[in-house]
């Protein structure tokens, strides 16, 4: 989990007992107009974006003294492991629970802007609908096809290197950062276009994960078939934005290259054998 960008060495000692302003993009629901509202939040030590949103929920008063509704957002673990709380903070997509105020706003009156991810339909305020991401996992058969849950002994043995490699890929928490940052990944409100619009880095990397497993390999053909057509691997422009924003440092570009090679071989094989 080494993550250089989150190792904090504050240049300025954050000012204690300061107030920070949150500028939040709000929207009451699908099809509704968006607006910005600002809130002053007193900062206690250890504050993160979630604790500030909790403060706003309990005190929904804007900077102009207007009473408003509590801001809606999505969260779960508060440990950067469930992926729920992803949003765009000061223009950059990331998890809000691990976003520390001391780092983002060390001075009195500093402003932090919170916006929902732009590649997914907004449900309300900062909460977006990432169902498409989960359906992409269905598309690439992101599972090991076991016979059933009865006791049939252990799974295939593997080397520590192989297991570590799969572990890294398997830490993907479906947060969507890589999709938000990808120039090829488009927002699709209409579920019928999900299948043909670029699938994005996370599901591609998941296809690789299961192709690497002794039993998971059995569905390799089906996975590659699913990634050959429109919306598949060929739509990746290789911009490499995805790998830069992945909070779990998953080697997404390696995954994309690996799947790309596999698809090429797969399509040749299909061409020559007719299978």
């Amino acid at each position: 989990m080494a993550h250089a960008s989150t190792i904090k060495n504050f240049k300025n000692t954050p000012k204690p007992d300061r107030t920070v302003q949150f500028r939040i993009k709000r929207c009451d629901g699908p099809g509704q107009p968006s607006r910005y509202e600002s809130f002053n939040v007193p900062i206690e030590s250890g504050s993160n974006v979630i604790s500030c949103l909790q403060y706003i929920a309990a005190n929904p008063i804007t900077v102009t003294g207007q009473k408003t509704t509590p801001v809606v957002w999505d969260a779960g673990c508060l440990e950067e492991i469930c992926g729920a709380c992803t949003m765009v903070i000061n223009g950059k997509v990331r998890q809000s629970c691990s976003c520390l105020i001391d780092e983002y706003a060390p001075h009195e009156g500093d402003v932090i802007t919170l916006e929902p991810m732009s590649k997914f339909p907004v449900v309300r305020d900062l909460w977006v609908d990432r169902q498409r991401l989960f359906e992409s996992l269905e598309k690439v058969s992101a599972w090991v096809p076991i016979d059933g849950s009865y006791d049939l002994g252990p799974g295939p043995q593997e080397t520590p290197q192989q297991s570590e490699m799969r572990y890294t890929l398997s830490t993907c928490m479906s947060c969507g950062c890589c999709l938000e940052a990808c120039p090829q990944y488009q927002k699709e409100d209409d579920a019928s276009s999900w299948d043909t619009s670029f699938i994005g880095a996370a599901p591609l990397s998941q296809a690789r994960l299961f192709n690497e497993h002794g039993t998971g390999r059995q569905l390799k053909g089906a996975r590659l078939d699913a990634l050959m057509g429109p919306g598949g691997i060929n739509d990746c422009g290789n911009a490499q934005n995805c790998v830069k924003v992945c909070p779990k440092e998953i080697p997404l570009t390696e995954s994309i290259a690996a799947v790309g090679r596999a698809v090429t071989i797969h399509s040749f094989t299909r061409f020559f054998t007719g299978k």
């Binding site: 090991v144 076991i146 002994g153 252990p154 593997e158 080397t159 192989q162 297991s163 039993t215 998971g216």
Partner: peptide
């Protein structure tokens, strides 16, 4: 032990020993 075996079959990347057994 049956729970662990099943999880293993499902593909959980358990840490491995040098020889490839579950650590």
């Amino acid at each position: 032990p049956k729970v662990i075996d099943l999880l293993d079959r499902m593909g959980v990347p358990f840490n491995r020993t040098a020889e490839g057994f579950r650590d």
